[in-house]
Amino acid sequence: MTDADPTDADPTDAAPTDAAPADDGDGAGEVVQAFVRGLAVIRAFDAENPELTLSDVARRAGVTRAAAGRFLRTLQTLGYVRNDGRSFALTPRVLELGYSYLSALSLPEVAQPHLEALSRSVGESASAAVLDGAEVVYVARVPVRRIMSVGITVGTRFPAAATSMGRVLLAAASAPVRDEVLERVPLTALTPRTLTDPEALRHELDRVRAQGWARVDGELEPGLQSLAAPVRSRGGEVVAAINLSMTSGRYSEAEVAERLIPALLAAARAIEADLRTP
């Protein structure tokens, strides 16, 4: 038995019986567990783990080696995964899985030129993100220089509580959404400066909501500072956030207040104006 061709049995993939109905009905609230596990296999890969052995995939996805092997072979047959004989990796075709969402979401297309203009005007990277549970997901980005150990691309996810865009989005979210993040999701210390006390974070979100922008310095990664502002839909709902990211200490407090924040807020308003355009 090789790592790329498992043969061990997986009881969770046994054929359905009368006592265990097949996962192909349409009952309300029904979850197809095989599909859930298949998505977990895809999500096992990330920027820090672009190539994984079968055992790595099984461990990260929380499935048996046999199940991981079946899912990987299926994905390979469909063209979403490649295998070099030892390890597996996603192929560019996996981007198709998110294309429908991005195609239906006008925000990236609307935001991109404004992010490019913002980045040119201040000389720093600019991005846009939306909230997905306890994480932010990047939907548009204009990089200037690499200032993080992990590369950021469209689709990159970070904990919302530790990012400027996440705090802008959480500050505007409903109370149940904030409670979900602050009470049920562990606030992990990503750096010594990460805010991990739920009550302190609540106060910070109140401050962000009152001032209309957020600033995070060294909480996601040492030496990284970011500023974020909300983007509102035609109906006034905060649907996204944009940010500027830079090296900590690169600018004086006066320059941040007098140049960077006004430029960021102006870009957010410009995006909103375009979103309101029929």
Rank of each mutant, 00 (worst) to 15 (best):
N83G: 11
L97Y: 14
V31C: 08
N83R: 04
V185W: 11
G151R: 02
S125V: 10
R70Y: 03
T247G: 14
A126Y: 09
A257Q: 15
T277V: 10
D23H: 09
G69H: 03
R145N: 13
A228G: 09
A40I: 05
N49M: 14
A104R: 07
A210V: 11
E124S: 07
Q76D: 10
L190V: 08
A214N: 12
A214S: 15
F71N: 01
E272M: 04
I242M: 08
G69Y: 13
G38R: 06
R202H: 15
I147K: 01
S245C: 04
E204G: 06
I42N: 02
D206A: 15
S106R: 07
V57D: 02
L187H: 03
E258Y: 06
E180M: 13
R184A: 14
V150A: 00
G29T: 04
V208P: 05
V136N: 08
L190D: 07
S87Q: 09
E219N: 00
A175T: 14
Q76E: 08
R59Q: 10
A111D: 02
E183R: 15
A89D: 07
V150D: 08
A273P: 01
R250N: 05
R276D: 15
L97R: 13
E253V: 06
S125Y: 05
H203I: 06
V177D: 09
S164N: 01
P143S: 02
L227H: 07
R276T: 01
V144C: 14
A254T: 11
V41Q: 09
E48M: 15
A210D: 07
R141E: 08
L275N: 09
L131D: 05
G62A: 13
E272K: 03
V239G: 03
L78H: 10
A44G: 09
M1E: 03
A22V: 14
T196A: 15
V110A: 03
P222Y: 11
L39E: 13
R178H: 00
L265R: 06
A210Q: 05
P222S: 07
L182K: 04
